[in-house]
């Protein structure tokens, strides 16, 4: 251990450079742990494959849209994938907090907003990959996109926006509770919101009244219906407006609260 000392002249770091550095690390972590991507990628696809076929009989219910159940069900993997993005974002951030890496970052001039944006930037990359895979598998299995190529692109944008909002939720949970266990503990709750929505049947075909009410008030229904409309209906302005509206609201709320939680967590004086 010996070398000459080095005097270093430092300028205040640029925000974009900070965001880039954190995002690069986040992506690098994901790329180097590819194995961890397999389950979140496969699980929604397996459910899609099974339910797409096993619930085929549901198309015989009067009032069911005139499409195959597989077409109807393809919207769900995008939402389930977004939930996995939420959990992995939260778990990664919580691990940094638990290991003390977060304190190391806190000792640099890194801004809280840059740390949050960088971390979420990495999650968006994962969300992009997932969404493209789900869409490709859906199309390969015979699902037609009623809104065409342009609609497929809008679908990807919407699903990435939804994943971004859920990633913000994961970050919020990590920053608020500081442990990976707490983040993962919320996963069942998030998963349940998908089940208690119009994920399996159109809302007008849900017979049990309390379930119908829950699905109507559950924003996840509108996220799913926004994506679904592009697949089975074409360009449905109302469904898209509600889908994008709720996705943006999710982003604004989760990122806003995550920003505040980040400030509280970065209790630098």
């Amino acid at each position: 251990m010996s070398a000459s000392p080095s005097a270093v002249a430092l300028a205040p770091p640029h925000l974009f450079e900070q965001v880039g550095a954190v995002a690069r690390r986040s992506v690098m972590r994901t790329v180097r742990q590819r194995g961890l991507l397999v389950f979140p990628l496969l699980f929604p696809l397996i459910l899609f494959a099974i339910n797409g076929s096993a619930l085929g009989a549901a198309t015989k219910i009067r009032g069911f849209p005139p499409v195959s159940y597989r077409d109807f069900a393809l919207a769900v993997p995008f939402i389930q994938g977004a939930l996995f993005v939420a959990v992995s974002t939260g778990t990664d951030l919580a691990r940094d907090i638990e290991s003390g890496f977060f304190d190391r970052l806190a000792l640099t001039p890194l801004r809280g907003s840059a740390l949050l944006a960088g971390q979420l930037g990495g999650s968006v990359v994962v969300a992009c990959v997932q969404s493209v895979v789900y869409l490709a598998v859906g199309v390969a299995s015979g699902v037609g996109i009623a809104s065409g190529f342009g609609g497929a692109l809008v679908l990807l944008v919407l699903s990435i926006l939804i994943a971004f909002g859920f990633a913000g939720l994961g970050a919020l949970l990590a920053l608020r509770f500081g442990t990976g266990e707490a983040v993962q503990g919320f996963f069942p709750l998030l998963f349940v919101t998908v089940f208690l929505s119009s994920s399996s049947l159109p809302r007008n075909l849900i017979q049990i009244s309390w379930f119908h009410e829950v699905a109507t008030y559950n924003p996840v229904s509108y996220l799913i219906e926004g994506i679904r409309s592009l697949i089975i209906t074409g360009w449905d302005a109302q469904a898209l407006a509600l889908g994008f509206g709720f996705a943006l609201l999710l982003c604004v709320l989760t990122l806003g609260f995550a920003g505040t939680a980040m400030k509280n967590r970065l209790v630098r004086t």
Binding site: V8, L10, A11, P12, P13, H14, E17, Q18, G20, A21, V22, R25, M28, R29, R32, Q33, D96, S99, G100, F101, F102, D103, R104, L105, L107, T108, P109, L110
Partner: peptide, 30 residues
Amino acid sequence: IGAALQEAALDAILTGREHLMLQATLQGMP
């Protein structure tokens, strides 16, 4: 200041050099 806190808080997935590059970037080094 520089600080090495109680736990050697490192990211197991990154290399030693990548840690130093990240730290240098966040410190605003050209």
